[in-house]
Design a protein around this nucleic acid. Structure first.
Lengths: 368, 368
DNA sequence: TTGTAGGCGTTATCAG
DNA sequence: CTGATAACGCCTACAA
């Protein structure tokens, strides 16, 4: 069943409550040319420099002068032109944030946290997305848009260790994620290995022995999949459980659908398992979904844990246990770093590497 | 259970696979001053204007000249300074997108769609968030940052019909959402009334008679809550079902937690109902969660439908029926409008109003 | 405490 | 087809 009207309508009335006044049609007045400092200066009978001083909060201004200027500003509705300011000062008060895709909950939540952190420093955020395409990741690094931003928080998903050279750019750059290590720039990431180890240990504690990993990337050396799989294997070693390759299930994209698909195939192949470690929450939620479809009890017969602690995890049925990777801390640290590099370009300290603190969040899917 | 190390670490090795080379510590070379057109012109032995012509793809250039310039550009690694360009041209190639919160799935998905649409026009997106605070919504409209963007897509959540005057700004503005109608600007929104009516009709078709609405906002006249409640009542009228106010459950914030809470209270009060219409998907998912906790079968005893068609809805247990509001179309239309207003400031056509086409998405929670 | 002069890097105008 | 030159609006010297 679909709307009977598949096209946009210019129908002004539709959907507007009858109690509203009829739509007026006042054309927005054509934008006048913006007021400049010169005009303010003329009206306040001072020089442009004085206006600038007032606008920038320079302290030594005679109160009377300041008042005159402020009055003129208010009357004319003057607003500083940030383009001009940023050309002159060489800084725009904007940082770039390059992400694969805003629609993926992890990145949406990260972006939100970055904006909150950026606000504390009074800077805006220009988001670019790469659609997880390798070429676009390179392009973001070289784009002329970089001159619109004072620095870039860069979260690649396709570039890999071999591309470390591309990080050698001439503007402040902070790397996020786990595709590249050891580059010439500050790097903020999550504790993938240790977090995955803790997740696996948690499942083992709850009695699991045949733990499937959903989301493996065959042959990957760095990257979330490889790191988290490493953590998984370490936990098995810690517990003296033999590693069984058949339990590592590939899933290229980390979406719910691929998580569900991986579990579906595993069941169809007759693989025995008593727990699923989804390498991210989306995969784990997909797994949960498939297990439900098959009437397999969670956590009774199979325990499930994810990674990322996206909001959905808390409201899934059953609620999903997961690893909270410290998104807020990652965002805050990354923004602090980039702002520091922007404000202090001569900062001598070398590339910094920070792993945010993680936490195991135990919920119903592993037995509370 | 928490990480044993709650602080960020400057520990370079942690989490890096052993196979990686030791971390090198080459300081990023201090940014050289950026190359300018002048330098390119000097090297190519042409005037700066010619360089500009090449950079901007002006067609009438002698091939030999063009080649020389391009060579110089490549050799020097020249990149246009967008700040300077935007000061000179009066346009930055950036649009603003003001949203309550990126972490809310609907807005994240909308933002994603806006970025995709913006890319088609070659413009970037500067996101601002208002944290759903009324003051910040006004602030976004007046902020000096507006001079960094050529126009603004504005999605208020707290401003209301009385604030329509604040939309009278001197830059291109496109209004999103359903807080204000009849303003002096283009307005793109979803078919709230008709969509809600269709959702309710869908529940009635499936046999529901006592349909609870979760997410009501008492006393609201416009706004998603009021509009969708209006649609609900129209569908009841269409079917000849009496309206029972006790079935309209308040929920100020539209989060999963408040949806769960509303259902909890309704059950505790002993209210009879055989269906829930969550005014958005988050509320409906919260309702689903609470019903599951109470072992109330969905869709057997209670049917549930939401609104927004966020990705989670398709992966909930059971999968959630919902109204798809045409996010992509909303984003595309809004971006087309703003770009048109930016490129053609003298455009005479009055404020346009568009409601995107909706669709009922029937899933398990209403019986497939 | 306030004013004047110059330039940030680009594009537009107008000659040549 | 290409070159000089003047803005765009602001901030930072330096001067008064």
């Amino acid at each position: 069943m679909t709307s009977d009207d598949a096209q946009p309508r210019d129908d002004a009335g539709a959907g507007v409550p009858a109690s509203l006044p009829d739509r007026p049609a006042p054309l927005r007045r054509k934008p006048r040319a913006a007021v400049t400092m010169h005009e303010v200066a003329a009206r306040a009978r001072v020089s442009i420099k004085t206006v600038s001083n007032v606008v920038n909060g320079y302290p030594h201004i005679r109160p009377a002068t300041k008042e005159r200027v402020e009055k003129a500003i208010a009357e004319l509705g003057y607003k500083v032109n940030m383009s001009a300011r940023s050309l002159r000062k060489g800084r725009a008060g904007v940082i770039g944030l390059a992400l694969p895709e805003l629609a993926l909950p992890y990145f949406a939540e990260l972006a939100d946290a970055v904006m909150v952190a950026a606000e504390k420093h009074g800077v805006s955020v220009l988001i670019e997305h790469t659609a997880a395409q390798r070429e676009r990741e390179f392009e973001v690094l070289r784009s002329p848009r970089r001159s619109l931003t004072d620095g870039l928080l860069f979260s690649p998903l396709e570039m890999g260790q071999d591309d470390v050279g591309a990080l050698n750019v001439d503007y402040p750059l902070v790397l996020l994620g786990e595709r590249i290590f050891g580059g010439p720039v500050d790097h903020v990431t999550m504790a993938n290995v240790d977090g995955a180890r803790a997740a696996t240990a948690h499942l083992i504690e709850r009695g699991a022995r045949r733990i499937a990993v959903v989301g493996g990337h065959e042959g990957e050396v760095v990257g979330s999949a490889a790191l988290r799989t490493t953590g998984y294997r370490r936990a098995l070693d810690d517990a003296g459980i033999a590693f069984d390759p058949v339990l590592v299930r590939e899933a290229g994209l980390w979406h719910r659908s691929t998580g569900a698909e991986a579990v579906r195939r595993m069941i169809d192949e007759g693989v025995e398992f008593d727990a699923v470690f989804g390498l991210n929450d989306a995969l784990a939620l997909g797994a949960l979904h498939e297990l439900h479809q098959r009437h397999i009890d969670v956590p009774g017969r199979v325990k499930v844990i994810g990674f990322d602690d996206i909001e959905d995890a808390a409201y899934a049925t059953p609620t999903l246990s997961t690893i909270s990777p410290g998104k807020a801390q990652i965002a805050q640290t990354a923004v602090d770093f980039i702002v520091e590099r922007i404000m202090e370009p001569d900062l001598l300290i070398g590339p910094r590497y920070v792993e945010a603190a993680y936490a195991v969040v135990a919920r119903e899917s592993t037995g509370g």
